[in-house]
Write a protein that binds this DNA or RNA. Structure first.
Lengths: 218, 218, 218, 218
DNA sequence: CATGAATGAGGTTTCATTCAT
DNA sequence: AATGAATGAAACCTCATTCAT
């Protein structure tokens, strides 16, 4: 009944921690069982096999992620602001869940098996959310309409993934949140200088002399 | 002596192909030996162990990559053009080397062991090249100086990696080169609309009517 | 009380079906429990363990078999006719109980553990019946007295077992009853040609006259 | 080269002994390896898996069996004598190879998997030999022509298998060869008394005269 | 240099059985 | 009586690596 769900969570939590310490192949079921405080066999009453256990992690986590993301975006109207919030929450989430981050970013995200598995559904859900924001921005007229939405999403997610991935590979030493504003800025405005705009910045601080030229934006 | 180099290449080439078909753990030395037409033991006369063989792949490949990249950039002066060329060559290279691409993008790029290994040197070399271009752009005044160079590089490489990774995961069906121009454009100009700029586009075609409207768009 | 017997039968019936589908080791208690519509633990309230359950099958079945056999033999006087009836019923029984037949003929019959178990009692009972018929035949003077009774039984049972075993191994496709008359004939008269008898009987023609001809056998 | 064949035999011999002590499932590879004096992994260089090793046993043994059988039958002309020799050799062979006998008679002979495997070929070869003898007997006019050859073979093999099987199940205590003559006799002449023949031969007395007495049987 | 036979550690998974509810 | 969650032992098989030839 309720106990069963609890036991499942107990195993899943152990799996997140242990899988997060090394990779799928180097992680043993016995280690996870020990961590969860159950017998090895017990794991197989809740999960079909090792891979099922592994892929069950994002099944749970992406649900939480997407739900929280929706909450954070609620009330924000300007799509550019939504993108900033999106980026912020993305970084924040992985900083808060480093074990999960390692599994997701360094293994599942690049796994064909994962992409083909049912657990990928949650990731697709999240990717739709990203796309929706960009689309909304186009409708609002604040996001470029001359470019493919999917490509724009590549930029957004690619930049975020890259930042998180490098952070993980380097041992999670720095505070990844520090780059949040500049990164949002970059995504929104690109790397090149363009005359006369202040793009979608919201912090109010001048980005540079360029903006002084420009007319002032909302 | 020359024969030795040949034999080594023979094994390396087999390794690229076999490692490229599945991942490190699911690839066996015997398979590679069979492919290379040598005995298993022979591999251990040219490479310390399986991981050494695996990591030796980028050691060779990144050298070629960087050298070629230099050639392609030679003669181009505008840093924005260099970035376009960089993006073009990046996509072009991985399309031309799909076996290697799979190993590099889906495994090594996210491997701590690789990041700590000596073979990572080649990747660093390449990353310096990216940074150098951005720096040059700043000096030329065509790349934003208000933002961290490293962060800009995250944007550039993240977008490219993301595109290539998705392409690989989806089975390399589409022609990845098609997105080259729009992607460069996005990297240079971001996703948001900004008034009155001439950005870094070089194709001459208008990106969209938005720009024609001029400044006042909110 | 009556319910208890019912529940037991319910499990036993499930066991016959499931054990009959594959062998002892490849059959799981959970499968049987599922088939019987009870929990796994329930099985252990009616049977000591898996082997006890398995061996309980012949305990029930041989009882029925022997009782039915007695009925079929009742009224038949000529031992040779009894042997024919015996063969007929033997084949008939296994054709009617293929699940049980597979377990008994392909597993229990060749199992030392079964031979040592208490459940073997039923089989012995049946073997006595076979011996009794042969003995009766000797007393009647219709069965050879120069040969060991046990060896004669080997011939009788061996031929029958062999026919049934081959039939089971080949997927129970043919109608095993078709060979009944010829097989009885063979058992009674052997494979070699011998002068002046009516060995090749196939129907209800009297067999008695042969004996009248020549009692004098070595 | 030759060493490889030797090593294979070494493992096979150990397998015969260990498999012969208990059944397939209760026998472990490690036990066989220990007995053979090799590492567990070595076994898998010569045999695909446990079942392959198991089924390889009859692959070798049936070859020897059939070859030897041919030798023993050479020179014997009367088909009935051949049957006697067949029975004698059958019993002799299994008495000489009790370990193998246990595996073959108590496991493989009743295994569907074995019947479907390639190793069954040897058994079929042997069964053809039996059939050939019976056919030859029919052509000689010494074996009944009114009955199905295959059924006659059932009688022959069934009786022999049954004798051997019971002997194995009872611990191989008696001398199985003792029953050889009577058994052959039974197979040739059946259990029933028939007039005017000398069915119950037990020694070297000519069997030919019987036929003289009564020529044509149906 | 090349070979490939031999090694043996190590992990996933199954499943009969128990026992608290 | 009935349940079914929990157990944990046990074994097959793979494969990187070595080393004698």
């Amino acid at each position: 009944m309720n106990k069963k769900a609890t036991r499942r969570q107990q195993i899943l939590q152990a799996a997140i921690e242990i899988f997060g310490r090394s990779n799928f192949d180097d992680t043993s079921i016995s280690e996870i069982a020990r961590r969860a405080g159950v017998a090895e066999g017990t794991i197989y009453q809740y999960f079909k096999n090792k891979q099922d256990l592994f892929f069950s992690i994002p099944r749970e986590k992406t649900k939480t992620f997407s739900a929280q993301l929706d909450l954070y975006l609620k009330g924000v109207t300007d799509a550019r602001e939504k993108i900033r919030k999106f980026a912020w929450y993305y970084l924040h989430f992985f900083r808060t869940n480093p074990d999960y981050a390692r599994s997701l970013m360094l293994e599942m995200r690049v796994s064909k098996a994962f992409a083909r598995s049912g657990s990928y559904k949650g990731v697709k859900r999240f990717m739709s959310q990203a796309l929706a924001i960009l689309k909304e921005g186009q409708e609002q007229g604040v996001i470029r309409q001359d470019l493919d939405l999917y490509l724009s999403r590549h930029l957004l997610l690619g930049a975020l993934e890259h930042v998180v991935t490098r952070w993980l590979l380097k041992g999670e030493k720095e505070d990844i949140m520090l780059c949040h504003e500049q990164l949002s800025d970059l995504i929104l405005n690109g790397v090149a200088i363009h005359s006369g705009n202040g793009s979608a910045r919201t912090t109010g601080k001048p980005i540079g002399k360029n903006r002084e030229n420009g007319p002032g934006r909302s």
